[in-house]
């Protein structure tokens, strides 16, 4: 493939993914407010547009128009760098996620339905998410405020700890699939989804994923009851919006990974005429991802926050040993059957 075509195709794919991603973020946030509202016997936003559907646009305008404050005592460069880092890294992880098994025809070339297909896709996602800690740590440190610093110290130790459980939980499915490529992992689930043999790993992954994305019940780094707003206390306007964006994109990423690794990705009943056959896998994939996103919101509306020592103890004394045991059992069974 000539270089120019390659760049053109990549550019188009990035554009499409970015557009879908940003729209999705905007509307998840609206859905969250609506659903949590319903759970608390409220109606949520209804004023802007029909059923409040234009609320995200109004929020975006508000973020842009607000005054952009940089505290005097802040470390200027790092203060500016950390929201950008958070948002960039969260978007970077999306690049290796395949959304369908087939290929698309672009500029006379067949290209897979993902921005790039690499052999170690899962490892790439883990690596990039692990770098996401820097956004939080540097934000807290550079704003030079007590609440921010406490929030980011919590965030750093929480994310580093739960990342371990997250990675270990993914090893079971990797052993079953025999590959680190997300595409191969999905293809290995043609006959049964990995959630069946790896149910324990699925639960561990889900719990750790909630902690990785700093969502309730593990939102200690931004616990508003005790820390103001945690690591982003000092941030306003677009800088705050970037943290916000990063959090929701991370939610989408971990939901996509859960779908691909445990719920069989785009596999599902395919029937009907050719066009429907082509679209259905995509629909299954999106539905499964939306299920996880709904789960996030549901949990947020339901569970209280952990206490900090409970959080660390739970991660290290429950999740990690369980995940290790799961790896042991899985590899024993796979080894005996082989």
């Amino acid at each position: 493939m000539p270089n120019a075509t390659f760049f053109l195709i990549s550019l188009v794919k990035c554009g499409v993914v970015l557009f879908v991603l940003l729209t999705l973020v905007a509307y998840i946030q609206l859905a969250e407010r609506k659903i949590v509202g319903r759970m608390q016997s409220r109606v949520g936003p209804t004023r802007v547009g029909p059923f409040g559907l234009l609320q995200p646009a109004a929020d975006a305008i508000k973020f842009i128009l607000k005054e952009d404050i940089t505290p005097d005592s802040a470390h200027k460069f790092l203060y500016l760098l950390s929201p950008a880092l958070s948002a960039t890294l969260s978007m970077l992880a999306i690049t290796v996620i395949p959304i369908g098994g087939g290929t698309v025809r672009l500029f006379g070339q067949n290209t897979p339905m993902q921005i790039t297909d690499i052999n170690v896709g899962l490892l790439f996602i883990l690596g990039v998410t692990s770098l996401g800690v820097y956004g939080i740590v540097l934000a807290g440190w550079s704003s030079n405020s007590k609440y921010s610093l406490l929030g980011s110290l919590r965030g750093a130790s929480q994310m580093v700890s739960y990342e371990l459980a997250l990675g270990l939980a993914l090893i079971g499915p990797i052993i079953l699939a025999g590959s680190l490529s997300l595409r191969h992992i999905v293809e290995a689930q043609q006959h049964y989804w990995f959630i069946v043999p790896q149910f324990l790993a699925f639960l561990i992954y889900l719990t750790a994923a909630f902690a990785e994305t700093n969502r309730i019940p593990f939102d200690l780094p931004e616990a508003e009851g005790e820390l103001g707003a945690g690591y982003h206390t000092e941030y306003s306007a677009m800088k705050f919006a970037l943290f916000f964006l990063a959090e929701y994109i991370n939610m989408i990423t971990v939901s996509c990974v859960a779908t691909l690794v445990f719920l069989g990705g785009w596999h599902g009943p395919v029937f009907g005429p050719a066009l429907l056959r082509a679209i259905l896998p995509l629909v299954w994939f999106v539905l499964k991802v939306c299920f996880f996103l709904f789960l996030y919101i549901w949990v947020r509306g339901t569970l209280p926050r952990f206490r900090y020592d409970q959080l660390m103890a739970f991660g290290w004394k429950v999740l990690v040993p369980l995940a290790l045991g799961n790896i042991l059992v899985t590899s024993l069974i796979v080894g005996l059957l082989a």
């Binding site: 490892l123 883990l126 690596g127 692990s130 820097y134 740590v137 440190w141 750093a156 580093v160």
Partner: peptide, 18 residues
């Protein structure tokens, strides 16, 4: 390459910064 990112940059250096 990716273990370098994951372990070195994502874990060891986070520890230093921490």
């Amino acid at each position: 390459a990716f273990v370098q990112i994951l372990v070195y940059a994502g874990a060891i250096m986070v520890l230093f910064v921490f």
